[in-house]
Simulated scan of single mutants.
Amino acid sequence: MSSAAAQDVPASSTATAAVLHHHTKPLELSTVAIAEVRPDEVRIRMVGAGICHTDPGVIATITDEESPIVLGHEGSGVVEAVGADVTAVAPGDHVVVSYNHCGECDHCGSGLPMHCRHFVDLNLTGLRLDGTSPLTTSDGPLRAHFFGQSSWATYAVANERNVVKVDPSLPLELLGPLGCGIQTGAGAVLNTLRPAPGSSIVVFGVGSVGLAAILGAKVAECATVVAVDIQQSPLDLALSLGATHAVNSAEEDVLAAVRDLTGGYGAQYSVDCIGLPAVVRSALECLQSPGVCASVGFQGTPNEITIDQGHLLFGRSLVGVIEGDAKASEFVPYMIELYQQGRFPFTRFIQTFPFEEINEALAAVHRGDVTKAVLTFE
């Protein structure tokens, strides 16, 4: 990772970051140096940062070549400094930080930043496109630009393109998940599927992403909203948030239950929030014809699934979704507007942990004790 050692500007200040050195070791809170922001960058004092399922996934599979790294990609905070070319935000602004994109490729130019040609390099390597990082340690290079933010630190350096200004009257510490997990679930329904009022939808897996999909289905005025999970407590929460029915797949035949709830036809739409092959298959097979399944669950790669091609005939579709097919600059404000109207109560499934307890928070997530963990900063 020698490319990350080349810093083009001197460090201007320090931050405390949760550094991952090895998948078998807890994160280490370390003092790191922050470089001066580049012309298109923004330095943010973090107020909140979510734990998304992608973060523990990276922790479990990290290699020596990919570490040390600072994770975190659901940040919210206050802008402290901006580069010379930044016009979208100013010091003092409250912001949510979402995924990064180049803003220059054909997909970004056609309104598809979630499919940016440089998405992997900009979001998953922990480095800028030129191989540098805005944070370093006294021991050497550090990957600290995960999803263009690495928000598991007291300060983060992001790009102007992946910060979204928000109303300062809002509970800033809770808004970070709108930049990824909540956006993914709600966007899969509202942006990808776009169900008509009165339609039927099944959501497989009602963690934070699935619950966001449930909220999206209620906003879309779906008449039948079925939550599916293997545990009863998240199903009860889903019912309280607007699901019309709950199916415990550890105790019931999901396909039979969905048929019974939809007049024998099957659902018009479904959302897979798990990514396990058997779940993806069930999410497709529960559909009537025509019907559409949006798959947002991720189990790492490779993740081969086998489906009966007959289930794709006569108009059934299976579509993969990244970041809820959302342009964060538009969709984050939309979700906030719905929240202010009382129609999108995503804060009900958030539990906060002090940043210093990040390892305890990760353990709670791993045990399934919390639906959405958010780290808060003093």
Results as ranks from 00 to 15, higher is better:
residue 183 Q to M: 01
residue 149 Q to A: 12
residue 142 L to F: 01
residue 192 T to L: 10
residue 312 L to R: 12
residue 4 A to H: 01
residue 195 P to Q: 09
residue 254 V to L: 14
residue 239 L to S: 07
residue 229 D to N: 09
residue 322 I to F: 01
residue 189 V to M: 14
residue 325 D to R: 00
residue 311 H to K: 12
residue 222 C to L: 09
residue 315 G to T: 08
residue 123 N to Y: 00
residue 84 A to R: 15
residue 305 I to K: 03
residue 202 V to D: 00
residue 199 S to K: 12
residue 266 G to E: 00
residue 349 F to P: 09
residue 189 V to Y: 12
residue 261 L to P: 06
residue 187 G to E: 03
residue 167 D to G: 08
residue 22 H to N: 10
residue 3 S to N: 05
residue 144 A to E: 12
residue 87 T to I: 14
residue 293 C to L: 09
residue 277 P to V: 06
residue 342 G to N: 05
residue 278 A to E: 13
residue 137 T to F: 00
residue 58 V to I: 14
residue 24 T to W: 01
residue 178 L to T: 01
residue 231 Q to C: 10
residue 335 M to C: 13
residue 130 D to T: 06
residue 170 L to R: 06
residue 21 H to C: 02
residue 13 S to M: 14
residue 133 S to I: 14
residue 262 T to A: 10
residue 76 S to T: 02
residue 314 F to D: 14
residue 367 R to Y: 02
residue 280 V to M: 14
residue 183 Q to P: 00
residue 90 A to W: 02
residue 332 V to N: 01
residue 374 V to S: 00
residue 350 I to C: 15
residue 258 V to W: 12
residue 362 L to K: 03
residue 112 L to R: 02
residue 214 I to G: 09
residue 264 G to Y: 05
residue 21 H to G: 10
residue 309 Q to M: 13
residue 310 G to V: 06
residue 45 R to V: 08
residue 69 I to S: 04
residue 127 L to K: 07
residue 63 T to N: 09
residue 104 E to C: 07
residue 10 P to H: 10
residue 165 K to W: 09
residue 132 T to R: 12
residue 28 E to Y: 07
residue 172 L to V: 15
residue 329 S to K: 11
residue 73 H to G: 05
residue 330 E to K: 13
residue 145 H to N: 15
residue 207 G to L: 00
residue 139 D to I: 03
residue 64 D to H: 11
residue 190 L to K: 07
residue 8 D to V: 15
residue 48 G to K: 10
residue 116 C to K: 05
residue 247 V to P: 08
residue 270 S to M: 02
residue 259 R to Y: 04
residue 251 E to S: 11
